[in-house]
């Protein structure tokens, strides 16, 4: 889909629905999934600098670029 982008390409304040998690790093994907980062869930990108901060429901999670690049989202308008 044209609207599918990597999470690290979202702008600050934008919301995206997770469509796919790259399973190249199963261990870290597993860890993120346990905090509710799973396909079908909406995430809001709160910060890009100095690192990425995501809001999922009532949870805030800090991730570095490497992990943010494992998550594919569909931009929501």
């Amino acid at each position: 889909m044209a609207d599918d982008i990597l999470l690290c390409d979202l702008r600050v304040g934008e919301v995206g629905k997770i469509v796919e998690l790259s399973l190249t790093d199963r261990k870290n994907i597993g860890k993120m999934m346990r905090l509710g980062i799973i396909p079908g869930v909406s995430v809001c990108l709160l910060r890009r600098r100095p690192g990425f901060i995501l809001q999922i429901g009532y949870t805030k999670v800090a991730v570095d670029r490497r992990l943010a690049a494992l998550i594919r989202v569909r931009r929501q308008h």
Binding site: N28, K31, M32, G51, T59, K60, V61, A62, V63, L67
Partner: peptide, 9 residues
């Protein structure tokens, strides 16, 4: 290791 941490309120 990649950085990943929950930020509690």
């Amino acid at each position: 290791a990649p950085f990943f941490l929950e930020l509690p309120p």
